[in-house]
C-alpha cells in the first residue's frame, strides 16, 4: 500500500460575494451569498515510502492547499486521503505523529523561547526517549550548523537560521513523512544548498518520504526523482523530470565555437542564433543523434569547441506555464 494516497481530492474555499455599486460595503456585509473558489480540483496521486517528490505549479495552483489536506489542517470538500493508513483530518493527532511539516512562510517554533527549548518541547510532545533525542539533536546541530544560534530566542533568528530550526523541529522525532512547503524561499545560495543537502541526506539515509513544493527549479534538479505538476487544482503531469523535459522540450541545443565566422547549415538541425563565431543549433536527438551532428560539424566547418546544453527544467516549466489557459 502506498504511504500517501490521494483520490479525487477537492477543496473549495468560500468567501462572501463582493458587491459593487451603491452601498457595496454594507451589502457585502449583510449578504449571505458566498463565492466559491475551487483551489484543488480532483487531485489523485500515490506516493510510495521513501520517494522524494516535487509538487510544482504556478502561484495559486493549489499546492499549499493540498499539503494542508495531507497534514490534516484542512478538511477536504470531497475525495479521499490517507497518510500511513490514517485519514489526516479525522485523526489529526495520530497523523501528527507520522509527519513533519515545514511551511517556509511561517515558523512553528516557540517565538519567545531559545531554539533549543523549542526543540526540547517538540521532543517531549513526541515522547522521544531521552538518549534518542540527544543523539538526534547532536546530529542535526552538526548537519544544519545550528550551534551558533541554538540559545537565541526564535524571534531574533534570521530567516535562514529560523528555517533550519524549523527543519530540525520537524524531523527530530523521526517522522516517516516530511512535507516541505517552500523551504528555501528567501534564502541565500549557501543556505539553500545546506537545506538541499540535509533533505537529500534524510531521504537517502533514513528513507524519509518527502513531498516538496518550491518555485526554485534548482531545488527540484538537485532533489526530486519524481514531479507532480498541478495547475488550477488539477494534475498536469506526474513522472520523472527527464520524461517531462522530453515531452515538453524534445529539442536540445548545441553551442558551436568557430575559428572564423561563417554560415552553418547542417541537415537535421536548425540555427537558433549565430554571430561572432558562435552558433547555437537546435536539434531533436530522436531524429539526429548528437554524435552524428557533431562529427558532421567537425568535418565541414572550422570548429574549435562544441558544448551540448542540458535542457533546463526552468525553461520547460516556463513553457508549460506560458502555454496554460
Amino acid at each position: 500500500m502506498p504511504l500517501i494516497e490521494a483520490r479525487g481530492l477537492v477543496k473549495d474555499f468560500h468567501r462572501p460575494r463582493r458587491r459593487t455599486g451603491r452601498f457595496a460595503g454594507l451589502r457585502t456585509l449583510v449578504s449571505r451569498e458566498r463565492e466559491t473558489v475551487r483551489a484543488v480540483d480532483g487531485v489523485s496521486f500515490s506516493i510510495e515510502s521513501g520517494e522524494l517528490v516535487g509538487y510544482l505549479g504556478p502561484n495559486g495552483a493549489g499546492k499549499s492547499t493540498t499539503i494542508k489536506m495531507l497534514t490534516g489542517i484542512l478538511t477536504p470538500t470531497a475525495g479521499e486521503v490517507t497518510v500511513a493508513g490514517v485519514v489526516p483530518w479525522r485523526k489529526r493527532q495520530d497523523n501528527a505523529r507520522n509527519i513533519g511539516v515545514v511551511f517556509g512562510q511561517r515558523s512553528q517554533l516557540w517565538w519567545d523561547l531559545p531554539l533549543v527549548e523549542s526543540l526540547r518541547l517538540v521532543g517531549k510532545l513526541y515522547r522521544m526517549p531521552r538518549t534518542r533525542y540527544e543523539e538526534n539533536l547532536a546530529k542535526f546541530v552538526e548537519l544544519l550548523d545550528m550551534r551558533p544560534f541554538l540559545d537565541t530566542p526564535v524571534r531574533q533568528l534570521s530567516l535562514g537560521q529560523r528555517m533550519r530550526g524549523d527543519l530540525a523541529a520537524a524531523m527530530i522525532y523521526e517522522p516517516a513523512v516530511l512535507y516541505l512547503d517552500e523551504p528555501t524561499v528567501g534564502l541565500d545560495v549557501i543556505a539553500k544548498e545546506r537545506i538541499r543537502k540535509f533533505v537529500a541526506d534524510l531521504s537517502s539515509t533514513s528513507g524519509t518520504t518527502v513531498l516538496l513544493t518550491t518555485h526554485d527549479m534548482d531545488d527540484v534538479e538537485a532533489l526530486c526523482e519524481r514531479l507532480i505538476l498541478i495547475d488550477h487544482g488539477k494534475v498536469l503531469y506526474d513522472g520523472t523530470p527527464a520524461a517531462l523535459k522530453d515531452s515538453y522540450a524534445p529539442q536540445r541545443e548545441l553551442v558551436v565555437q568557430l575559428a572564423s565566422p561563417c554560415e552553418v547549415t547542417v541537415a537535421g538541425a536548425r540555427t537558433v542564433e549565430s554571430g561572432e563565431g558562435v552558433v547555437r543549433l537546435s536539434f531533436d536527438p530522436a531524429e539526429t543523434p548528437a554524435a552524428a551532428l557533431i562529427s558532421e560539424l567537425f568535418g565541414n566547418y572550422p570548429v574549435t569547441d562544441v558544448s551540448l546544453q542540458e535542457t533546463d527544467l526552468e525553461d520547460v516549466i516556463k513553457k508549460i506555464y506560458a502555454g496554460r489557459s
Binding site: T71, G72, D94, A96, I99, V101, R106, L125, Y126
Partner: peptide, 14 residues
C-alpha cells in the same frame, strides 16, 4: 492569520 495551523499538526488537542 492562519497561525492556528500549528495547533493542528502537533499530537495534542488543538
Amino acid at each position: 492569520e492562519g497561525s492556528f495551523d500549528r495547533y493542528l499538526v502537533r499530537p495534542a488537542s488543538p
